[in-house]
Computed example of a mutant assay.
Amino acid sequence: MRTTAIGATAAMAVIAGLVAAAPASADLTESVERKPAKAASVHGQARISYIESIDDDIRFTIRAEQRPFTRPVLPIAPEGLSTDARGTLTFSHTAPSGESGWAEAQVDCLVTSGRTATLTAVVTKSNVEDVGTRLGISVQQAGKGEPARLGFSWGVVNIAPEHVDENGQPMRPQTGTCMAPASFTTVITGGFEVVHAELMKSPAQTEGASRRG
């Protein structure tokens, strides 16, 4: 099963502080100041209703927490990014025929705003996705009179002529960190809790401002 655009082939592709006491120092002060009062996070599990696979059992489980400046993977950001995150994403998709797909992935990015969150995770195990594929997920926590919602990057977005192979089948374009569509599906059982936290200033900017002061 390969992920494709919306249509007949899309169905199975969906699958789915305490700081220890220590002598005061400038370095310790700066370290403490960089720690957010709370960490942005998303936790929960849910079954969703997807219009292209209305009779299928599609479930997501998310446990993600922001860990700013912990993934120094780019020369332009040697200390990492404020959206760095860790955690797990799992999903499964079972059709009425019994055919099923599933995947497990490690969260690498998370950003929040109020009741909404966008995260990405890199596949580590799956029977339908390539290991190393980055997946984008958006979540909206249920509100007063509103159900929870979820969106996924491989269902309805990033399909263009240049992303079609020689057989006319859509290819999976690369998903960047924290990239995902709006939450376009409805949660029918379960739900998600989103904890919002403002993004932190990078250590380099903080240290530069301190020196100028």
Rank of each mutant, 00 (worst) to 15 (best):
G80I: 02
L150T: 10
Q174D: 13
L110A: 10
G132W: 07
A160K: 06
D130S: 06
E30M: 04
I6T: 01
F152G: 00
P75N: 08
D84K: 04
T29A: 05
S92A: 13
E193T: 15
D108A: 01
T4M: 06
S183F: 07
F192A: 02
E162W: 12
A10F: 06
T116H: 06
A182R: 11
A11D: 01
P181Q: 13
V187N: 04
A24D: 14
A85H: 00
T185L: 02
G176C: 02
S202A: 14
W154M: 08
R59N: 02
A20H: 05
R212V: 11
Q140T: 15
H43S: 14
V139P: 07
A103G: 13
D130M: 04
D27A: 14
A85Y: 03
A39K: 10
Q140I: 15
T133W: 10
G44D: 04
F60I: 04
V164A: 05
I54G: 05
R172N: 15
L81C: 12
V14S: 03
K125T: 13
G176F: 02
E65I: 10
T120K: 05
H43K: 15
A13G: 13
N158W: 12
T61R: 04
G17A: 04
E198K: 12
P147F: 12
F91I: 02
V194S: 04
V157Y: 03
Q205F: 14
Q141N: 09
I51R: 09
Q140M: 14
V157S: 07
K144D: 09
H93W: 14
R172V: 15
A103T: 09
A39Q: 10
A160I: 11
S97R: 00
R59K: 07
T185F: 10
Q45L: 02
H163P: 05
P173S: 04
T88H: 08
C109Q: 02
M200R: 08
V195L: 02
D57Y: 12
R47H: 11
T185D: 08
A77S: 11
R211I: 13
R212A: 11
M1V: 15
A11P: 00
P68K: 10
S25E: 12
H163E: 15
T189N: 03
T133H: 00
T116G: 09
A40Y: 11
G44R: 04
R115S: 02
D57S: 13
